[in-house]
Amino acid sequence: KLLSSIEQACDICRLKKLKCSKEKPKCAKCLKNNWECRYSPKTKRSPLTRAHLTEVESRLERLE
Rank of each mutant, 00 (worst) to 15 (best):
I12S: 06
S58W: 14
R14G: 02
E55A: 12
E23F: 09
L63N: 02
R38F: 13
H52C: 04
L15H: 10
K29G: 02
R45S: 03
L3R: 09
D11M: 03
K24V: 15
K29N: 05
C10H: 01
R50Q: 06
L48R: 04
K29Y: 05
S5C: 11
K44N: 12
L3H: 10
P41D: 10
L3V: 10
A9N: 03
C20K: 06
T49N: 00
A28S: 06
E61S: 11
E7F: 13
E36H: 13
I12T: 11
L53C: 10
S5M: 10
A9I: 08
R59G: 06
K24R: 13
E55I: 08
Q8F: 15
K24C: 14
N33Q: 13
R59F: 02
K22T: 00
L2V: 14
C13V: 07
C20W: 00
E7D: 11
Y39R: 06
C37L: 00
E57C: 06
E36M: 11
T49P: 00
C27T: 02
Y39S: 06
L15D: 12
H52R: 06
K29E: 00
E36T: 14
L53D: 00
R50A: 00
K32V: 11
A51W: 01
C37V: 01
S5R: 11
R14E: 03
Y39M: 06
P41C: 05
H52L: 04
R45C: 03
L18M: 15
E57W: 07
C10P: 00
T43C: 12
L48I: 09
E61Y: 13
A9G: 10
N34I: 11
D11G: 01
K1G: 15
P47Y: 06
C27L: 03
K16P: 02
E36F: 09
K1N: 15
P47V: 06
K16Y: 01
C30N: 07
L48T: 06
K1H: 13
E61I: 11
V56H: 08
L31F: 15
D11F: 00
K1E: 02
L2A: 13
D11S: 04
H52P: 00
T49C: 06
V56N: 01
R50G: 02
E55H: 10
K16S: 02
C13A: 03
S4V: 10
C13L: 05
E7T: 08
A9Q: 06
I6K: 08
L63Q: 01
R14L: 05
K19H: 06
Y39D: 03
L2E: 15
K17Y: 04
H52T: 03
V56Y: 08
K1C: 15
P25W: 04
R62C: 11
T54E: 09
